[in-house]
Each structure stands twice: as structure tokens, then as C-alpha cells.
Amino acid sequence: MRFGKINYLNLAPFDIFIKKYPTQSSFKLFINHHKNYPAKLNKEFLFKRIDAGFISSIAGIKAKKTKSAIISYGEVWSVIAIKNGNKFDYQSASSNALSIVLKIDGEILIGDRALKYKLGHTINKDYIDLGLEWYKKHRLPFVFGLLCCNKFEKFYNKLSKSFNNQNIKIPQYILNKYENLTKIKKNDIKEYLRHIHYKVSNKPKISLNRFYRGVRLTRIKVPSRF
């Protein structure tokens, strides 16, 4: 089974979970060597080079979805629009589309790079948090990524359910590792992860449908094989 994973801090709890989850060693070997940014995983998923993974929500419109996702209820910290010209982030399809739906101009930045920028500009706040702007407008969380599958649907639904039901704490030695890799302080990492949720309940479903409606109305091109 070929699983692709977003290589960002927002899936740190999933990293901890999957190490202990009972599955084939080949599955864990593949996931450890197959990490990338969302837009890249979108293509690999759509071309079926991977069987499953966390992909951009805009790329999962027609995909088989589990009940796990990357969700923010308000501020997300890691998806921002910098008030400095207009520029999309090549790493994300959903965040670029979200900025269009919200009619927000700026340089779109996502992931750990956005988190670093936000933490370094807390006084001169020259950015807009897109998760917060969506919440202000709709009073709903925003779903940035979805755990989708092309194959082995029963397996991934079971995995998703197990992940959602766990209260995962990240050990200090793992936090130290992330701090060394990202140069983001571990206390900031812990605070950031409090803004990230994973279970797709009723409100995220409503929000996702509202986002998809916005995508259709603004005629945004959805990622596809062709």
C-alpha cells in the first residue's frame, strides 16, 4: 500500500500515530520515504501513483474521503496572505483557491514557512490568516486537507477512525527533533498544533461543501489528471 504524506508540522500527531498503528512494514517504509508538499501529492494521487494520502481539499472533490482531515476552527497560523503583492504558493492548491474565494490579495504562504513568518511578525502583523478570515465570514472551520484513498477503502476508513479517536501527545524528544529540523521553538510548535484538528464532523462537512460551491462560482480550475 502506497501512502503519501504532507511533510509539514501539522501532521506531527499523525506521524506519532502511524508509527504504532498495526500495519505492514512496507507501508511504513513507503510513508517514511514518500513525503512531499500538498500540490505534489495531489498529482501523485490523481495519477494513482499513491493509493492514499492527505491531499488538498480542492483536489479531493470527487475522491473517496475518510473522516480525517486537516482543519482549523479560526486561526490556522500556517496559511497566510502576506500584504506584499499577489503571488500564489506553488505548494498548495486549496490555499490559493481559498484566497480567491475570500477575495483576499497578497502573497500566499503555507506550511512551516508560513508558520515561521507568522511567528516572526507578531508585532508588525503584515499578513492575513486565511483560516481566521473564513471563520469570520462563515462561522465555520476550514478544511485544508483531506485523507483520501484510491484503493483499500476499508483499511483507510478503519485507520482514520482509529486516528480520530486518539488523544496523541508528542514526546519531548520528538519535539526536540522537530525544533532542530524546522528551527521553530518547541513551545511554538505545541501552541500551533492546538489550532489544528483532524476529525471531520458535521461542521467541517458543511464548510467543505460551502468551499466547493465557492470554487464553482468563481470558476477555479480544480486539480485533475488532464
Rank of each mutant, 00 (worst) to 15 (best):
E133D: 04
N202Y: 13
N180A: 15
I196G: 04
I189L: 05
I71Q: 03
Y198N: 03
L46F: 03
Y90Q: 09
Q24S: 15
K62R: 09
D112W: 03
E75N: 07
T23L: 11
L130E: 04
A63Q: 09
Y192G: 00
Y73E: 01
N86V: 14
I110R: 01
E153P: 03
I104S: 12
L11V: 02
I50W: 00
I50H: 05
K65W: 02
I104M: 11
P223M: 08
K40N: 13
A63W: 01
G145I: 04
C149M: 08
F144I: 10
N32A: 14
Q166I: 01
L9W: 06
S201M: 08
K19Y: 09
D15N: 15
I108E: 12
I6M: 07
Q24T: 15
G4Y: 07
N32R: 14
N42I: 11
G106S: 13
F163E: 02
R216M: 12
S99Q: 10
Y156A: 05
L130P: 00
R2I: 06
H34L: 11
L9S: 13
K199W: 07
R219C: 10
L159I: 09
R2L: 13
K87R: 14
T66S: 12
F45Q: 03
L119V: 01
A97H: 10
K158F: 04
L193C: 05
L109Y: 11
S207R: 08
N167T: 07
F142W: 06
S78K: 08
L115I: 01
H138K: 15
I55S: 00
D51S: 01
E191Q: 14
L41P: 13
N7L: 06
